[in-house]
């Protein structure tokens, strides 16, 4: 990988969720003009397998070293796209998302021109950030192979049994003197009447 920054921008239409409000073609043309952006791709669903495949393909073919995904909130698909770029051989922290759905197309549904303008700026901001991203190494920690279940009602009982039957030690902590919870107070229960 050379020292020059090569950013790929992947715009998601999210069916009509984004494309119904934001003019994705206009956004694509705009993104091309941003510094260090070497390719811009519009997909119907970037998170779907074909969309992810495109990212992996462009990372390899275009020798990308940064990826910007303009789609939904990172709270939803940041792990998805981090894994995707990582599969393509890029450090997962070199991927940045622009939230043009929850923070743009869905909340400015009736002003398509302004929403498109805002989406451009969100992508611009993401590209600006992406240029300065650095690869990060995640700390790996050992796992204590035991679980704590808090509450001994029907849910806590079921979860404890499943975990214990899978072979792991379980600590089941219940505040009351007996497990059983509300369930133990009920008479017959629907839909089986037992």
């Amino acid at each position: 990988m050379g020292s020059e920054t090569r950013i790929g921008v992947f715009i998601c239409e999210c069916g009509s969720n984004i494309a119904g409000t934001v003019n994705c073609m206009e956004l694509m043309e705009y993104a091309k003009s941003l510094p260090d952006v070497v390719c811009v791709v519009v997909n119907r669903y970037t998170c779907a397998e074909p969309g992810q495949q495109e990212i992996r393909r462009y990372v390899c073919e275009q020798d990308l070293n940064r990826v910007v995904v303009a789609a939904c909130t990172p709270k939803m698909h940041e792990p998805t796209f981090r894994k995707c770029v990582s599969d393509a051989g890029l450090n997962p922290y070199l991927m940045e998302m622009a939230n043009i759905r929850e923070h743009c197309s869905w909340v400015h549904h009736f002003d398509k021109a302004k929403a498109t303008q805002k989406a451009k700026e969100l992508v611009k901001s993401a590209v600006a950030r992406a240029r300065l991203l650095e690869p990060q190494k995640e700390l790996e920690v050992p796992v204590t192979q035991a679980a704590l279940v808090i509450g001994g009602g029907i849910a806590g009982i079921q979860a404890s049994l499943d975990l214990a039957n899978a072979g792991y030690p379980v600590w089941l902590v219940e505040k009351a003197p007996s497990i059983g919870g509300i369930m133990s107070q009920l008479n017959k229960t629907y839909p089986t009447m037992d």
Partner: peptide, 24 residues
């Protein structure tokens, strides 16, 4: 639950502190 060899049942118990992070 009471009988399971891998379940340690602590009734009449309350959690006082939880520290650490995923896995630990």
């Amino acid at each position: 639950v009471g009988r399971h060899p891998r379940i340690k049942l602590l009734t009449y118990s309350e959690i006082e502190e939880i520290s650490g992070y995923i896995g630990n």
